[in-house]
Write a protein that binds this DNA or RNA. Structure first.
Length: 577
RNA sequence: CGGGGAGUGGCGCAGUCUGGUAGCGCACCUGCCUUGGGAGCAGGGGGUCGGAGGUUCGAAUCCUCUCUCCCCGACCA
């Protein structure tokens, strides 16, 4: 591609909206353009990367026998009502009506559609296993889209769905996908981890997420320093605390704490440690009843754990009004003493004594509060977020280590949730009707591109892994006015393309420095530089973007040299851990 | 949803307090000059100042309403 004819306007300055490095670089390199919050156009350069990633995904899934199809982006409400998710799914499901007033939504995922597709076709166990996938735009009306492609509302996703005769076969499909994913992300040149995670609103028995390791990642992953246990912070189990023998239980007493609402403020004011406080969080359930969740002052409620424990989809932190009506006091002063609502408490609370809690009235706290004596807990459980350095729940030796990750893929086992509710059944070898056992598997394509940039950049710009670079080679013609240079560059352009390489040829009439800066920003793995200076000695230059190394090579040897360098880089990148 | 901030040419910003000819840098066009790490000079095109109403002789600037975007939060999967 001749750059003079390409659509690629790089920016020297960073648009103000861009917070993360990948977002900034994508905007500067003219890969994406925003048209609304969380909604982007993939510009030619960006789209090439998307296509490269899609290509790798297709190859690896096809290798596993998966079959590609394309489902509609707009979905009728009926199938969502059938699966009971129309009311279950939150506000991120974008709903609308057609001209006849019928309900539709933009597909945030495609379990319903695929189940509908398969139930029409599936008759016999002989047709199984089946694994269907698509690469397509999805829409989730995120509350706060940000970081460019990292968390868009419209985003390109590969989603696959497996159908099997039984659990055992389904598990086989699951692990086949798990390994295909590992190959995909290796080929993309990414450092990643597969972690255990919460299965969330989509429902299902267990799941792994694939996280690209990056400091800017939005997800927190905890990993045992000793054993293999690695989990998303939402899932990460907390070790049950050792039993503590309580000393004397003191007399409960009310103290004034004017304006002290936060745990830290109250602890400081009463001269106790935050872990001496019982934090009382009031939540509102779907039917507007309120519940209280108690955790130790230095702990945080894990809403996912609470939600899963209650078997609910929706759980909202109560607003001021709800807190007032549930506790009789303002927010910041809630406590379990005298509370008439259902009270869940974290295991750690069970071991506390002479604690501090809110008194359910303005500017007042109780001290020397003791569980069971002063208030009744409905149920104890693991309701808090695990923290770094805590002891591992699975082994005796390890402690949690924490790192940040960008979730680029996930694999779920769905069981028969959808095949039962939507009647996707087949006849087994005994002629008995059975529901298909399903799994679903997603990869965020745009997010993978963004994650790759987060992991591969330097102060000059992007450093693309070879396998997902928009082009293989940047050919820089430094003297577009000079006939000899022009001729040499054109020969190289042809020669490189004959090798089957994707070449971006910078034939623009701009100064050399400008071209170097752009080449580094865009970040193609190899740069071939042709100028008057080198040509005097009959040589052109080859530069490796990743390490900056340059070698002078005679033009006729360049295609082979480039090829060799690319292969070397590729090998290195695929081996990364 | 709550809190904070911002909307002025494609991008980055000044001007708003104290109302009076819409400006600067980058990018773009023309010419000269220059040519191995985002050159220089000269000339030029492009903006209903997010939108609607109001106050005023006069509004980017003051008032009211509204929309959008960004950041933060116990938000989201």
């Amino acid at each position: 591609m001749r750059m003079s004819r390409y659509l690629l306007n790089t920016l020297k300055e960073v648009p103000r909206e861009a917070e993360t490095l990948s977002h900034q670089l994508m905007l500067r390199a003219c890969m994406i353009k925003k048209i609304a919050a969380g909604i982007y156009t993939y510009m030619p350069m960006g789209y090439r990367v998307i296509r490269k990633i899609e290509g790798i995904i297709r190859e690896e899934l096809d290798r596993e026998g998966c079959i590609e199809l394309l489902m509609p982006a707009v979905q009728p409400a009926e199938i969502w009502k059938e699966s009971k998710r129309w009311d279950f799914y939150g506000k991120e499901l974008l709903r609308f009506k057609d001209r006849k007033g019928a309900d539709f939504c933009m597909g945030p995922t495609h379990e319903e559609v695929i189940t509908d597709v398969v139930r029409r076709e599936l008759k016999s166990y002989k047709q199984l296993p089946l694994n269907l996938y698509q690469i397509q735009s999805k829409f989730r009306d995120e509350i706060r889209p940000r970081y460019g492609l990292m968390r868009g509302r419209e985003f390109i996703m590969k989603d696959a769905y497996s159908f099997d005769v039984n659990d055992e076969a389904s598990e086989k499909s699951y692990w086949a996908m798990y390994h295909a994913y590992a190959r995909i992300f290796h080929r993309c040149g990414l450092k990643f981890r597969a972690v255990e995670a919460d299965s969330g609103a989509i429902g299902g028995s267990y799941t792994h997420e694939f996280h690209v390791l990056a400091d800017t990642g939005e997800d927190t992953v905890l990993s045992c320093s000793h054993c293999d246990y690695t989990a998303n912070i939402e899932k990460a189990e907390c070790r049950k605390p050792d039993h503590i023998e309580h000393g004397d239980l003191h007399q409960i007493e009310k103290k004034e704490t004017p304006g002290k609402k936060s745990v830290d403020d109250v602890a400081e004011f009463l001269a106790v440690k935050p872990e001496a406080l019982i934090k009382t969080m009031i939540f509102t359930l779907e039917d507007d009843t309120a519940i209280a969740v108690l955790v130790r002052g230095d702990h945080e409620v894990n809403e996912v754990k609470v939600r899963n424990y209650l078997g609910l989809n929706a759980l909202e932190l109560a607003d001021e009004e709800a807190i007032q009506s549930a506790t009789g006091g303002p927010s910041g002063f809630s406590g379990p003493v005298g509370l008439k609502i259902r009270i869940l408490a974290d295991f750690a609370v069970q071991e506390m004594s002479n604690a501090v809690t809110g008194a359910n009235e303005k500017d007042m706290h109780w001290v020397n509060v003791n569980p069971e004596r002063d208030f009744k807990v409905s149920e104890y459980g693991d309701f808090r977020l695990a923290q770094a350095k805590e002891r591992c729940p699975r082994c005796e030796e390890g402690r949690y280590q924490q790192f940040k990750g960008i979730e680029v893929g996930q694999v779920f086992r769905l069981g028969t949730k959808y095949s039962e509710s939507m009647n996707c059944k087949f006849l087994d070898e005994n002629g008995k009707e059975k529901p298909a056992v399903m799994g679903c598997y997603g990869i965020g394509v745009g997010r993978t591109a963004a994650a790759a940039i987060e992991q591969n950049n330097d102060e000059n710009g992007i450093v693309w892994p070879v396998n997902i670079a928009p082009f293989d080679v940047m050919l820089l013609n430094l003297d577009i006015q000079d006939d000899a240079v022009n001729e040499a560059a054109l020969d190289l352009y042809e020669g490189l393309r004959k090798e089957g390489l994707d070449v971006l040829y910078d034939d623009r009439d701009v100064r050399a420095g400008f071209k170097f800066k752009d080449a580094d920003l865009i970040g193609l793995p190899i740069q071939v530089i042709v100028g008057k200076r080198g040509l005097k000695e009959g040589l052109a230059e080859v530069k490796v973007r990743r390490n900056g190394e340059r070698v002078k090579v005679s033009p006729q040897d360049i295609p082979a040299k480039v090829e060799a360098l690319l292969n070397g880089l590729k090998e290195q990148e695929e081996q990364r851990r």
